[in-house]
Design a protein around this nucleic acid. Structure first.
Lengths: 233, 233
DNA sequence: GAGTGGTCTAGACCACTGT
DNA sequence: CAGTGGTCTAGACCACTCC
């Protein structure tokens, strides 16, 4: 029961959340419409709207025009995770960041990469391999293909000084991206670079970025053993 | 240059995004304040506010009272990923879902679990191990500890019929959670369950949930080799 | 202290969609 | 067609923080 007016959308959100969690409003049930809640809470409809929208974004409510607002039956756990620039991630943890370019090779990408990037048969690309270090210890191996048709300017960049990632975020804004997280075993090439044993389980992030419908870059980051990606919900 | 009024916050967002991506507004630069933009775009300040807030949420703008709004220098890639109920994930992919309870053991948790869950020394808990299958093939091994002090009712549930996860989402709403993603090698116990070879790299999700400051459950999900977690940005 | 974003309000109209 | 959420507006006040 509400005694005094709820004046902020956060307060409204908290009260609605309480009713969901206390099962006052059962999963799947229709909740009162915005005008009714605004009246009950003693605030404007826009305030209720803001609160309910925030809860819908978090996956706790399902809202549809005319149909009304329902408590989600299967609350989806929605986690937001920041994918930081490696330099930032390492420096935020209080370590010194170092970077070393291993390879920089113009050339045709292998078939699997070409397909993932949807490049034509004879497309030119730039292959970059690099090692990122935290306090001098290997942190992650970067294996990247860059579509030089979209960002020709990168061919003139000295990637020994500035990582491809940092150049790209500054000069090649993307409109769309996808990310894959997976586990992979360290092979003979990767293991020594990461000071790991062949066969060690590595955490891998594979990321593609696109400008409209054209691939900019595809990168595979293989992290040293022990890496964890953390997020709060 | 804007010729006709931008009437929706999405239109305002698109125009601002265009200026960021075209570097009309350089990274780190201060952009006009809300009143000025509202005037230029021919809409209300609230509309501009909504658009800029959405972009700030996506990590493309930094906003501070009095200081104004700046283009983020290092655009953070923020990915939202849904952590579905396993049954849903498997059925969404068009497979048949099966579930098999391997173990159900009341008892004291080991020290590392107790510490992660911040349980007192002699706390009672319920240990559950289960296998989730897709089309009859092992999909993930679940290794879970449940704090029976918080959800005593689960002791009466027949976990051979209903997975602990599904019972918990319906009966123990949590206020806070954390998630860790990592890679681990299959050990002698896990490998046969997942039809994997010992040493295979497995994708692992470790999730803790809390009601206020009391741990509800801690679960470790070890996925069969080849699993990928995907998200679009 | 003053400038900027954060939010609330009351009212209005629009857009979608279930019946 | 009617009910519900989605959004816009104009104006107001507040809260934070830089100077």
């Amino acid at each position: 029961m509400i005694t005094s007016p709820l004046r902020s959308w956060q307060a409204v959100q908290a009260e609605v959340l309480r009713r969901i969690q206390s099962r006052t409003w059962q999963p799947g049930a229709l909740i009162p419409h915005e005008v009714a809640l605004a009246e009950e809470f003693g605030c404007a409809r826009a305030t209720v709207n803001r609160a309910l929208q925030a809860l819908a974004d978090r996956g706790l409510l399902d809202r549809r025009r005319k149909a009304g607002t329902r408590v989600a039956t299967l609350p989806v756990r929605r986690a937001t995770l920041d994918i930081p620039i490696l330099r930032q991630e390492i420096e935020n943890r209080g370590h010194r960041y170092d970077y070393s370019l291993l390879k920089r090779d113009p050339g045709a990408p292998p078939a699997d990469v070409r397909i993932r990037m949807r490049l034509p048969e004879e497309a030119a690309a730039l292959h970059v391999e690099a090692l990122h270090l935290a306090d001098g210890r290997p942190y992650v191996v970067e294996d990247r293909w860059i579509n030089t048709a979209v960002v020709p300017a990168i061919q003139a960049v000295d990637l020994a000084q500035l990582s491809a990632n940092e150049w790209l975020v500054a000069h090649a804004p993307f409109t769309r991206g996808d990310v894959n997280f997976m586990a992979a075993s360290a092979d003979e090439t990767l293991a020594p670079l990461l000071q790991a044993k062949p066969g060690d389980a590595l955490f891998v992030i594979e990321r593609g970025t696109w400008a409209e419908e054209r691939a900019i870059t595809l990168v595979r980051l293989s992290f040293a053993p022990g890496y964890r990606l953390y997020t709060a919900v």
